[in-house]
Design a protein around this nucleic acid. Structure first.
Length: 570
RNA sequence: CGGGGUGUAGCGCAGUCGGCUAGCGCGCAGCGUUUGGGACGCUGAGGCCGGAGGUUCGAGUCCUCUCACCCCGACCA
């Protein structure tokens, strides 16, 4: 490809709104162009990377037994009503109405469609297992797109679905996918860690996320360096810090004029926050819920939502709390009736707590569970934090940030039951098909690779996903010898099956070198009057500082030997 | 959805006590000189100042409404 003809233009300056590294670099290299919030065009450089990523994914899916299909983007709304997930997805769904006023959605994922499809073709245990997949555009009306390609509203995703006769089969499919995913990241040159995750609106039991560890990560990962335990913070369990045991003392009222927050009360009474009980109010599917938790711990809303089996969970409004007769700032579960109380297990870890007195400007001392209050439910609804202890080995937990670049789920049978996907076993009995689903976003993977592989000059592409493999960089093109030699070399490299970006512009050396670094192709070949004096060219890896002088007659073979093996063997 | 911010040339920005042909840098086009780590000179093209309404002799600038985009939070396979 001639650089002068490439639909792209490198730029020095970048719009103020681009703040993540991958976003800035993709704009500066002319890879993407935003059309609307979270909606992008992919120019040739990005397109080529995406195709390479997709082909790696496709290859691994095929090897693992996947069969590629294409399913509709337009999906009737009834399908989502049937599965019951329309509600769980809520406003994320892009709604469309056709000319007959029929409601459709733009597919955010395809479990409904695939289950419907498979239920038609799979009738017997003999047809199972199957693993259909597709690589296709998905639509999700995210509340807040951000970070360039990190979170967008229209994106290409590979989604594979496994259908098995039983749990054991599901586990086998799941393991195959887990291995295939590891292969994909390795081949794409992106280090990831696999962590335990919450399945969210998708539903199901077990789920694992593959996280790229990068600065701009949206997710917090709690992990243990000692035993390797790692989980999304919204799922992570931990051993909470212990409180010294004390003999339960009689409850005592204390004045706390004007002190409302845990920090204020704890400071005023000169006690650590771990010695207090905190009250937080939520509305779960329209019902007010009182949440009690130890003062030093935050509520994990995902765990709470799961514990309540709620579809919609949000913090309660001031008025809603007031109308329920609760005194915000001095609230406690003590003596509370008619309101559902969910307590974190931390309220049982400790004694003689400070809690609200349910009247303004007063708190209670020496509150103990269950002597002084009870709860509708006591369970783990705490947000695990760095500094707490690992549930597996008791070592101290750390937290890091990551981007979710893949998520695999064991769905089980709930969708098959809802959608009517049953198979007949050897005895002629009918059973719901056991499902799993496995997603990976191509654009996000691309952005993550840049996040993980760049320097102050630009991108450093791994060979496997680079838009081109070689940056052919002639200097002083007006010199006929240079023009002829580089033209000649360009042709030979192309004929050898090497993907070459030929910088045929009449720019200064510095300008070209800087563009080469910015674009980040793995190999740079420089030809100039100086190298031609020695019948040579200069070869340089983008990832390394040093250069190598290679004779003209050897360069094609040398590049072939570097690039082709890496290209052809995964 | 709550809080904050920004819309002026392809990109980055200035101009806003209302006033004349709306500027600067980068980029783009032409000519010339240069050039092993983002060169320089000259010439030139390019603007419904986000949109609508209003105030005014006069609006990029003031008022009202609106739209878009970004950031923080909420939310998020």
């Amino acid at each position: 490809m001639l650089l002068s003809k490439l639909i792209s233009k490198t730029q020095k300056e970048v719009p103020a709104e681009a703040d993540t590294i991958s976003h800035r670099l993709m704009i500066r290299t002319g890879m993407i162009r935003q059309l609307s919030a979270g909606v992008y065009s992919y120019l040739p450089l990005a397109h080529r990377c995406l195709k390479k990523i997709e082909n790696i994914i496709r290859d691994e899916m095929d090897k693992a037994g996947g069969q590629e299909v294409t399913m509709p983007v337009l999906q009737p709304r009834e399908l989502w009503d049937k599965s019951g997930r329309g509600e769980a997805f809520g406003k994320i769904l892009f709604d469309v109405t056709d000319r007959k006023e029929r409601r459709l959605v733009l597919g955010p994922t395809h479990e409904e469609v695939i289950t419907d499809l498979i239920s038609f073709f799979v009738k017997s245990y003999r047809d199972l297992p199957v693993m259909p997949y597709q690589i296709q555009t998905k639509f999700r009306d995210e509340p807040r797109p951000r970070g360039g390609l990190i979170r967008v509203r229209e994106f290409t995703m590979k989604d594979l679905y496994s259908f098995d006769t039983d749990e054991e089969g599901l586990n086998r499919s799941y393991d195959k996918m887990r291995q295939a995913y590891q292969n994909i990241y390795r081949r794409a040159g992106l280090p990831v860690i696999m962590i335990e995750a919450d399945s969210g609106a998708i539903g199901g039991k077990d789920s694992s996320e593959f996280m790229a560890i990068v600065e701009c990560g949206e997710d917090v990962i709690i992990h243990c360096e000692k035993c390797g335990y790692a989980a999304n913070a919204e799922k992570a369990k931990s051993i909470k810090t212990k409180q010294p045991y004390q003999v339960a003392l009689p409850v005592e009222e204390v004045a706390t004029p004007g002190k409302k927050s845990i920090e204020e009360v704890a400071a005023y009474l000169n006690t650590p926050s771990s010695q207090t009980l905190k009250a937080v109010f939520y509305v779960a599917d329209g019902e007010l819920v009182f949440v009690a938790i130890r003062g030093d711990i935050e509520v994990n809303e995902v765990k709470l939502k799961n514990a309540l089996k709620a579809t919609d969970l949000r913090l309660a409004l001031t008025d809603e709390v007031k109308n329920a007769g609760i005194v915000a700032g001095s609230a406690s579960p003590i003596g509370l009736k008619e309101v559902k109380v969910i307590a974190d297990e931390s309220v049982t870890m400790g004694s003689n707590f400070i809690a609200g007195a349910n009247k303004p400007d007063y708190h209670l001392k020496n509150v103990n569970y269950p002597r002084d209050f009870t709860a509708t439910m006591i369970t783990d609804i705490a947000l695990a934090q760095a500094g707490e202890s690992c549930i597996k080995c008791d070592a101290e937990l750390k937290s890091i940030r990551g981007i979710e670049v893949g998520h695999i789920f064991k769905l089980g049978t709930f969708l098959a039951e809802k959608m009517g996907a049953f198979y007949t076993d050897t005895e002629g009995k009918s059973h719901p098909i056991v499902m799993g689903c496995y997603g990976i976003g191509a654009g996000r993977l691309l952005a993550s690779i840049i996040e993980a592989s760049h320097d102050e000059k630009g991108i450093i592409w791994p060979l496997s996903v680079a838009p081109y493999e070689v940056y052919l960089c002639p200097l002083f093109l007006e010199d006929d010898r240079v023009a002829k030699a580089s033209q000649d070399l360009y042709k030979k490299l192309c004929d050898a099956g090497i993907e070459v970006l030929y910088d045929d512009r009449n720019e200064s050396p510095g300008f070209k070198f800087n563009d080469a670094d910015l674009l980040g192709l793995p190999l740079r070949i420089t030809i100039s009057p100086r190298t031609l004096e020695r019948d040579s060219v200069e070869l340089k890896w983008r990832s390394e500082k040093k250069t190598e002088i290679v004779p003209l007659e050897e360069i094609v073979d040398k590049v072939k030997n570097i690039v082709l093996p890496a290209k052809n063997s995964p």
